[in-house]
Amino acid sequence: MDFKDYYQILGVARNAGAEDIRKAFRKQARKFHPDVSKEPDAEARMKEINEANAVLSDPEKRALYDQMGSGHQPGQPFQPAQGWDSNFEFSGADAADSSDFFASLFGRAGGARRSGAFRMRGEDHHAKVDIELQDAYQGASRTISLRRPRVDEHGQVVLDDHTLEVRIPKGVKEGQHIRLSGQGAPGEGGAPAGDLYLEIRFTPDARYRVDGRDVYETVPVTPWEAALGGPIEAPTPSGPVTLTVPAGSQTGRKLRLKSRGIPGDPAGDLYVVLEVVLPPADTDTARRLYETMARDLHFDPRRTAGA
């Protein structure tokens, strides 16, 4: 485990006052806020910044950190002495979000301090799970890796990697949560553990757009399929289907396949959006056919458009 320089992370001097630290934290939090930042590692940086702020904005933790950290350089191997923090009590935690270094210094201490009423029950943890759209149709299972603090035989807090396999039920929607009772932080003094909330996210798939349980899918068709109509086979999240293109269709025409969206009560619908794709004029035959159309059809799409 390497030593982390929280002062360097926030970009403040070691003797910075509380106001300077608050200002520096906000400046960094604005820069790396994962919802706004364009930096590729924004989420990881934000965690680090939160961690640094949690320590440096708390006079007790800061004093302990200064005491432990004197003489260490960032990146240097680091191991706190046994029993070094025995006189301090920390509360509040989001162990899933904190680094090994932080956990070893402050145990499960972390985020905001909490009022007495909540102190005993373990904290609820939050994680995101990415699934494919097809998983929402069929159900799936996902393996989730979490880190859990544990006090080892030397009295030191270590983080254990912990793997859970979770069933993703059929019919799940984007943004929905799955709650796993008792899989959050352990309780203290015999109190129950917190819960783990998993937020479902769909892996972006260029073929599909999802709105609640309704699914939109763009399906390419040839000009003659669109103009003359007829049955076509189209891939869908629940497997290929045959559907009838009405004669005289244009790009953008929506065909609704009832109850072929994400399953549920009620199930969503699948909307097939037609996209007419022109064959390239890269052979003599193709060029001749286009020339024939140009000569015989007298078709001018600009005559009506915008008139």
């Binding site: 299972s141 254990d160 990697d161 912990h162 793997t163 859970l164 396999e165 979770v166 069933r167 039920p169 799940v172 929905q176 949560h177 799955i178 709650r179 796993l180 009772s181 899989q183 783990l196 998993l198």
Partner: peptide
Amino acid sequence: MTHDDILTGELL
């Protein structure tokens, strides 16, 4: 590392 059986959560 510990490994539990497949957990079935509660869909909210």
